[in-house]
Structure formats: structure tokens, C-alpha cells
Design a protein around this nucleic acid. Structure first.
Length: 672
DNA sequence: TAGCCTCGAGTTCA
DNA sequence: CTCGAGGCTA
């Protein structure tokens, strides 16, 4: 008997220790002991419970690894209902609410607490005598699903509250929180699912919901779920006077509350926090879709009361959603200037993050099928940190039958058989005479290489369809009369367009090289080629070995570039363009500048006041600096204008790259 | 040979 | 802007 008593005592000790260290690790992020030491404690308890099954307790930390599958979830009534929050989306509505609050209270003396609004699942945790008795989803607000076993696998949820010495446990305490999946964990999970050939999840919220509703809690245990606790059900005999103190009270008792919560003395300060976090939300490792604002004082909360179950003392400020669902009508195929087949989705127009999206690239067949996106699906679209919309995935389950996407076997433009080189992601139309190539490269010429004013993509398409311009030389032979036949061109605009076409003959050699559509030759390589060979005659005679000497060109690319210049058709094109007066040798402006900034590399992001990004880049280059487009350890400095690109800024901060604002840039340009 | 870096290519919307 | 891949460097 004595032995069993010892075991019982030790087991209780171990449970306390383990719970305490779980709390240090998962809630405070401040472990006291090493993982190995923790594992030793945990293993000891497992062993003890195995030898003495009578000691196993439902609230033991060993029960957090998950239980075998259960058939279905029981319904669970919430002792006090989980209301929802009225939302506001504008500063005006926020101020109107504040006016209503002060009017009802008869005082301007109102303090607010703001907290990030987590895009996750609302959960109610019921503690009886400080022990987690039941955890349930929100459901309809009065009754949800009992997911206690699954919730116990989340290490940041205390199964036993950490009571300060001498404090008596409350018979019932309801704690409200939001279960979510951190973005880092979400990405890892999807990588794992993809590598196992399983279906990936479209967003962290769905992933969290799916994980929490697993019938087999052992699967839940493997999912990287976490929780932010943000309040209480009924306050009962709580010794605090307001929400702000309640958060502190919860924190002290082992609950993971969000450190970004703030207390504000004025609504202006609240509005500032809302605006600040709309900008900064991408810095977080979890998704937030707004800010929750609560009147701090419990006494004031009570006086304000509720309307239709929605408290008058709280609002959810929701930002324009960065994601939305809409219908994917069709997957269309566009053939690019290199022959690559590019599938893109035609969407029912939908507003996301303040702009209307009607189409989005779908990259390639593999990507489409990995995400299981199909024509006719309801899909989730988003604009993440950037501007470019993405189709994230279908809304499941599907309401109607749809078919898996297959790339066409023949080119939609020239009917050639489509190929997909081994190991490459893109399908290609191998037909070098495919109309897409000529057309797309003409478009690339007028809008990128030569940047001709007055002639855009639409004009080029119409000129192509009419058969007036099917090649670069034909563009330069185009007459005013021919152009005037086109709808949308009058006498004046036709004259201007022809003038700018002719003027574009003067573009420097490197731009000409870029515009020729040589595979593997973009802006930078074109410039390097121009500088190295200086004259097209030397390029036309070059061997692959000679091309290898150019910066950034290895054996593979050298071969394909040399081959391009030895092709008869290409040589004829070069000759014809030369006769028309385009420049095929290096000029002063192509040569690298020497200056005080030689050897340094800068990146420009955002909008500057005094000049455009291009002008800023040119000014830096004139002093010998190199200007690139992506930040790395080697970057000398990042010039930051208004509304900078978020990824560049964070990368620069991470790599310790110095930031320059516009005045610092001006000083640099002036002082050298 | 791995991992960093840079480039090419395709892309959206106002 | 992001992705993939080739080139460069330690």
C-alpha cells in the first residue's frame, strides 16, 4: 500500500511540474528547463500511470496526446451565451459609436481596450473548480460542439488553472478564446500534406477548423494549433473592475492572452491603433481581419447593456477583407511570347482589399490540380502582402459536380501538339511560328522594350488581326494612313503614334537586344551582352564559349543564345532591323558609369516625391551604383518612399540593410 | 555540392 | 511580386 501512496504522491507532483513547464513554454514563451529535461519528467509520469492505471486522471498532461477516434461530437450548451459583435468598417462609424457610448453614459470619460481580431474559431472553455471541464465551439452561440478532447491537445490551453497561493477555485469560470493556426505552422502543414499526396487546405482558418473537428484527436495533436484567450463568459465574482485588468488576471492564471492588447484613453488613440495594425498585420504569424474594441470598465459595460444579444460596449472594426469567395467561371489559356501556356481564371468580379478582381493567374496545371481548382467551383481569392490576386483553393464541400482540370493537348491558337519537358512546370507550344509568339513579342516590344507612346496592347492586337503588322519590321513600315483605319485613331493620334514608332528606332542597343525575345535574355542579361560584345556583328559570329564570358551566363544559356544568333531567320530579322535604322551597337548611355558609388548596390521601393523610381535609379546609376530589384545581404541600402513594398522592407530589416528615406537619398546624390 | 543570389518570365489593377 | 532555375561562391 505504501508503495502505491508514494506513486500517487509522485504522480501528483509530476503533473504539477509538467503543467507548470507547459505553461512556461507555451504561454509565456519562456521555458525554464530544456526540452530533454521536460521529456524526462513526462516519460516518468507516463511510466507511472502505466504501472498504476488507477492513477490515470482525465486532466493529466499525458491525456494531451489525443484519444482514439470518437464517433461524433456531443452537443454542449454554453452556460452563458456567446454573443457576436456588431462590426464597423469606417472611422466615421467608429466615431458614431463612441458618440453613442458617451451619450448613453453621460460622460466623456471612457477608456477602451483594443485587441487584434483573430481569424480563427471561437471557443468556450468551462473551468469547474479550476479544472478544464469542457471546451466547445461557438455553434449558434447558445449551443456548440463538445471538442474537449481535441482542445486538450493544444498545449497552450491550461487544463488546470494556475491559482496564486491561497486563492480559492471558482466553481465555474467560462473563458473565451480564439483557436487559430499560426501561418508558419499552416505552411508546414500544407507542405507535408502535399508531399504525402494529400489535399492541401486553402487557408489557416479552414485548417484550424478542420483540425479541431478531427474525429481522431491524435491527428489534432499533430496539428500546430494555438489559442489567444480574450475574455470571460459570465464574470461572476471576478475581483477586477475592467476588461484590461481581467486580461491581466487571466494571464496570471495561466491563460495565453494577446500581448498586443492596448488600453486607450481616447477614441482617436483607438483609431490610430486600428490604422497602424491594418498596415502591420502582415508582420504577425497569424491572420487578423480587424481590431476588437471594448469599453474597459465593467460598470460602464453593464450600464450600456446589449441590443439583440450584441453588446453596446464592444465593436469589431473589420478591415476590407483580403480574401473573398467567388465563382470561377472558366479557366482560359493564354500562350506567352515564349510559347509557355499560361492558365488564368475568369472570375465573377469580387471586391478584395478595396479593389475588384475579375481574373487571376493559375500558374500551371500541376498547381491547379494540387489545389484541386476546377471550372465552376466556388473559390477563395486573396490579395496577400502584394497587389496580385491569387486563387487559393475551392470552397469545400462542392455544391455541384465539376471536372478536374486538364491542359489542352493542342495549342488553342495554332493547333500544334503541346509538349511538357520532363521536370519543368510549364506546358509549351513548340511551334516557333505560332501566332502567339509573334503577337506577344510585338506586345512586349511596344510596351516594355521600346515603350512606344500611343501604341498599346489593344492596338497591336487589332493591327495583328487586320494583318497590317505581323512582325517588328512591319511595325516600323506602318504608315499613318494604315493606322488611321483603326477604330480609335484619328488624324492627330495616328500622326503622333507613327512619330513615336519612328522615334523608338533610337532606343539603345541593350533594349533592342531585350526586345528581340531571345530565350533567357531579360533586361540584365541584355545589358551585359551589349556591354561585353559592343556590336551585333561580334554577337552574330560568337561561339558558345565566348558567350560564357558574359556575366550571369553559364554553359546552358550560352549555348541557346549562340544558337539563336546562328539561326537564319533570326539573322535575317537582325539585318532587316539594322537597315530600318535601329541601333545595333553600344552607345555612351549603355556603358557602365564610374563614380563615387561604384561597387554599391541599391534597391528602391515605394513612391518618392521628387522623382519616379526610374529617375531615382538612373541618378544612382549615374554615380556608378548598381540598382537591382531584390534585397539581399549584398545590398548597400534600401531607398524607401511612401507605401513601400512590405516584403522588401522586412527583408532589409532582417538582413540589416540600411534604410534611406528621400532626404537621405538626396544627400547621397549631392554629397557623393 | 549546397546554399545564396540574381535573373527571367508571367502577371493585376487603377 | 513571386516562382523557378541557372549561375556563382564558399
Amino acid at each position: 500500500m505504501a508503495r502505491s501512496d508514494d506513486a500517487k504522491k509522485r504522480a501528483a507532483e509530476l503533473r504539477d511540474l509538467i503543467d507548470y513547464h507547459l505553461y512556461r513554454y507555451h504561454v509565456l514563451d519562456d521555458p525554464e528547463i530544456s526540452d530533454a529535461e521536460f521529456d524526462r519528467l513526462f516519460d516518468e509520469l507516463v511510466e507511472l500511470e502505466r504501472k498504476h492505471p488507477e492513477l490515470a486522471a482525465p486532466d493529466s498532461p499525458t491525456q494531451r496526446v489525443g484519444a482514439p477516434p470518437s464517433s461524433a461530437f456531443e452537443k454542449a450548451d454554453h452556460p452563458s451565451p456567446m454573443g457576436s459583435l456588431e462590426k464597423v468598417t469606417t472611422n466615421e462609424a467608429l466615431e458614431k459609436w463612441h458618440a453613442d457610448v458617451t451619450k448613453r453614459l453621460g460622460t466623456d470619460d471612457v477608456a477602451y481596450v483594443t485587441e487584434p481580431k483573430i481569424d480563427g474559431l471561437s471557443i468556450n472553455l468551462a473551468y469547474e473548480n479550476s479544472r478544464l471541464a469542457r471546451g466547445a465551439t461557438r455553434g449558434d452561440g447558445r449551443r456548440g460542439e463538445d471538442v474537449t478532447t481535441n482542445l486538450k491537445t493544444i498545449k497552450a490551453i491550461s487544463t488546470r488553472m494556475q491559482l496564486p497561493k491561497g486563492e480559492k477555485p471558482l466553481p465555474l469560470l467560462e473563458v473565451r478564446g480564439e483557436v487559430y493556426m499560426p501561418l508558419s505552422g499552416f505552411r508546414e502543414l500544407n507542405e507535408r500534406l502535399a508531399s504525402e499526396g494529400k489535399k492541401t487546405t486553402p487557408n489557416p482558418r479552414n485548417a484550424a477548423a478542420g483540425s479541431l473537428r478531427q474525429k481522431n484527436s491524435q491527428i489534432t495533436a499533430e496539428r500546430p494549433l494555438n489559442i489567444w484567450v480574450h475574455g470571460l463568459g459570465h464574470r461572476g465574482e471576478l475581483p477586477t473592475e475592467g476588461h484590461w485588468d481581467a486580461l491581466q488576471w487571466l494571464r496570471e492564471r495561466g491563460f495565453r492572452t494577446n500581448p498586443l492588447a492596448e488600453r486607450h484613453e481616447s477614441i482617436e488613440s483607438v483609431a490610430r491603433a486600428v490604422a497602424e495594425w491594418e498596415q502591420r498585420r502582415l508582420e504577425l504569424d497569424y491572420e487578423i481581419d480587424g481590431i476588437v474594441i471594448k469599453v474597459d470598465s465593467f460598470a460602464q459595460q453593464e450600464r450600456l447593456g446589449a441590443l439583440h444579444d450584441r453588446p453596446r460596449w464592444a465593436r469589431a472594426f473589420k478591415w476590407a477583407p483580403m480574401t473573398a469567395t467567388t465563382t470561377l467561371h472558366k479557366i482560359a489559356i493564354r500562350v506567352g511570347r515564349t510559347g509557355a501556356l499560361n492558365p488564368w481564371g475568369i472570375l465573377e468580379p469580387v471586391e478584395v482589399g478595396g479593389v475588384t478582381i475579375s481574373r487571376a493567374t493559375l500558374h500551371n496545371e500541376e498547381d491547379i490540380n494540387r489545389k484541386d481548382i476546377r471550372e465552376g467551383d466556388e473559390v477563395i481569392v486573396q490579395r496577400a502582402g502584394d497587389v496580385i490576386p491569387q486563387v487559393v483553393g475551392p470552397v469545400l464541400p462542392r455544391q455541384k459536380r465539376t471536372r478536374r482540370f486538364r491542359m489542352p493537348e493542342r495549342c488553342p491558337l495554332c493547333d500544334a501538339k503541346i509538349v511538357k519537358p520532363e521536370g519543368e512546370a510549364m506546358h509549351r507550344c513548340p511551334n516557333r511560328a505560332c501566332p502567339s509568339r509573334g503577337l506577344e513579342s510585338l506586345i512586349n516590344w511596344v510596351q516594355a522594350a521600346a515603350d512606344i507612346e500611343g501604341v498599346g496592347e489593344q492596338s497591336v492586337r487589332r493591327l495583328w488581326e487586320l494583318g497590317l503588322v505581323r512582325s517588328l519590321p512591319e511595325l516600323y513600315r506602318l504608315t499613318k494612313e494604315q493606322l488611321a483605319e483603326l477604330e480609335g485613331y484619328g488624324e492627330i493620334s495616328a500622326t503622333k503614334a507613327i512619330e513615336s514608332i519612328q522615334a523608338s528606332k533610337a532606343i539603345p542597343f541593350n533594349r533592342v537586344l531585350f526586345g528581340l525575345n531571345i530565350p533567357d535574355v531579360g533586361w540584365v542579361t541584355a545589358q551585359n551582352l551589349a556591354r561585353h560584345f559592343e556590336h551585333v556583328d561580334r554577337l552574330l559570329d560568337s561561339t558558345p564559349e565566348e558567350v560564357t564570358e558574359v556575366d550571369g551566363i553559364g554553359a546552358d544559356r550560352a549555348e541557346s543564345i549562340a544558337e539563336w544568333f546562328s539561326d537564319e531567320q533570326n539573322r535575317a530579322l537582325v539585318a532587316e532591323l539594322r537597315d530600318l535604322g535601329l541601333r545595333f551597337q553600344i552607345g555612351e548611355e549603355d556603358k557602365p558609369k564610374e563614380g563615387p558609388l561604384t561597387g554599391s548596390t541599391y534597391v528602391v521601393t515605394g513612391t518618392l516625391e521628387a522623382f519616379s523610381r526610374e529617375q531615382a535609379a538612373a541618378a544612382l546609376e549615374a554615380l556608378g551604383a548598381k540598382v537591382t530589384n531584390s534585397v539581399s545581404k549584398k545590398t548597400t541600402g534600401l531607398v524607401v518612399g511612401e507605401e513601400p513594398g512590405n516584403s522588401k522592407l522586412t527583408k532589409a530589416q532582417r538582413e540589416g540593410v540600411p534604410l534611406l528615406d528621400e532626404s537621405a537619398l538626396l544627400k547621397l546624390l549631392a554629397g557623393g
